[in-house]
Simulated scan of single mutants.
Amino acid sequence: MQEIGVGLIGYGLGGKVFHAAFITRTAGMRLRAVVSRDPAKVHHDHPEVAVVPHVDELLTRPDIDLVVVASPDELHAGHALAALAAGKHVVVDKPFATSLADARRVVEAAERSGKMLTIHHNRRWDADFLTLQDLIASGRLGRIVHFESRFDRWRPEPGATWKEARAGGSWLDLGPHLVDQALVLFGMPTAVTADLAVLRDGAPAPDWFEVILHYEAMRVTLHSSKLAADHRLRFAVHGTTGTWLKHGIDPQEPAIVGGAIPGGAVWGHDPDHGRLTSGQNSDKPEYIANRNGDYGLFWRQLVAAIHGEGANPVPAEDAIQVMTVIQAGLDSAQLRRTVDLVADPV
């Protein structure tokens, strides 16, 4: 199987932790070049990798087959379009783009080019989310009536970074993860109601959101706050026969930040078991052990897909649906009303 040469645009948290750490440990891939203004930072982790100052220089390299876009959000669409025009396969970090229109432009360009386009919605492979999928499929919760998914933080002081000031705030940062997981479980909603707010003193963009996805006989609540001192609640899932509560976050990101190497039998082990309470036996809750999470599955599936031996791990159509909900949330918050995805297509 021919080795896939990879070029990475950007070496911030995303490029370092979620991309390079896994690319360099995925059979069939080789990280060959990184676009960065800080060569020392890249070479500290990957001394054998070339560092180039400009995207154009990366795209002209014949040894690059796949480009991973981990640049600031507003550059995602432009970098993806340039990579596709150069005949490269493309991975785009979330958010796919800063607007639904730009996301559609990238998908159309990929269709014309015949190259693979995929979006890095890595939290499909969180330990607790994999466990939840199994639990729902088992029928032990009955029909889901309310699904609550939260990414809360305790960051009372706004940081002086572009991420804090991004248009759409945390809805564009954390929202894509929560939306993608909800769509994997339940498909597209019929309507979206969103409230975005700035709650921290001096914050330049929304740092709190509460978004409701409307389904027939079910509601999905997506929530995030950066002023939650107790921020351990991750999922609260209520069904007609039981409730599952999960606290704690998937351990893979903090493990890599702390210097761990992805892989091995215990990689992605989440010790915070979810609590299942049966409606018929509410005084005897059951603790459900988590499956191991594995962000490396995205990359292994991508290798197979590029070689025509498997499906795209996150098809562009899925990412367009995520962006449709993200855009509807922005519109809903601005208009202060529910946006109907059937009557008000965005």
Rank of each mutant, 00 (worst) to 15 (best):
P315A: 04
D294T: 08
T277E: 02
T277I: 09
G293K: 02
D344F: 01
Q280T: 15
G274D: 04
T324Y: 00
Q301H: 09
S282F: 13
D344T: 14
Q280P: 00
N290H: 06
Q301I: 01
E309G: 10
G308F: 04
H273V: 09
Y287V: 08
D331Y: 08
H273N: 11
L335E: 15
A305C: 14
D340A: 05
I288E: 03
A304T: 10
R275N: 00
A328Q: 05
S332G: 05
V339K: 04
D283R: 06
L276M: 09
S278Y: 00
W299P: 03
R300K: 09
L302W: 10
M323S: 01
A304P: 03
H269E: 13
I288L: 11
V303G: 04
E286K: 08
D318A: 14
G308P: 03
D283Y: 05
R336E: 15
P313E: 08
Y295E: 10
L297F: 11
Q280W: 15
Q334Y: 09
R291L: 12
T277D: 00
Q321A: 15
P271R: 14
G310R: 02
D340V: 06
E286R: 12
N312M: 06
D344P: 03
N292H: 13
W267Q: 10
L341W: 07
S278E: 02
Q327A: 14
S282W: 13
D272M: 12
L330S: 10
A333P: 01
I326F: 08
E286M: 14
D340N: 12
L335Q: 15
L302S: 03
L276S: 01
P315Q: 04
S282G: 12
G274L: 01
D294Q: 04
P313C: 05
R300S: 00
N281F: 14
A343P: 09
Q280Y: 11
W267K: 09
E309N: 07
A311C: 06
V322C: 04
E309Y: 04
L302F: 07
T338S: 11
G279D: 05
P315K: 02
L302V: 07
Q301C: 05
L276N: 00
G296Y: 04
G274M: 02
R275L: 04
H273R: 05
R291H: 14
E317V: 05
W267R: 09
G296F: 08
L276Q: 02
R275C: 03
D294A: 07
V342Y: 11
G274Y: 00
V314F: 11
I288Y: 00
G268R: 08
L297V: 14
I288W: 03
Q321W: 10
A316V: 07
Y295G: 02
A265M: 13
T338F: 06
I320Q: 01
V303S: 12
I326D: 11
A305K: 04
I288G: 01
V339M: 11
R275F: 01
V266K: 10
F298W: 13
L302H: 06
I288S: 00
I320D: 03
D340P: 08
R337Y: 11
R291K: 12
T277M: 01
A311I: 02
P285Y: 01
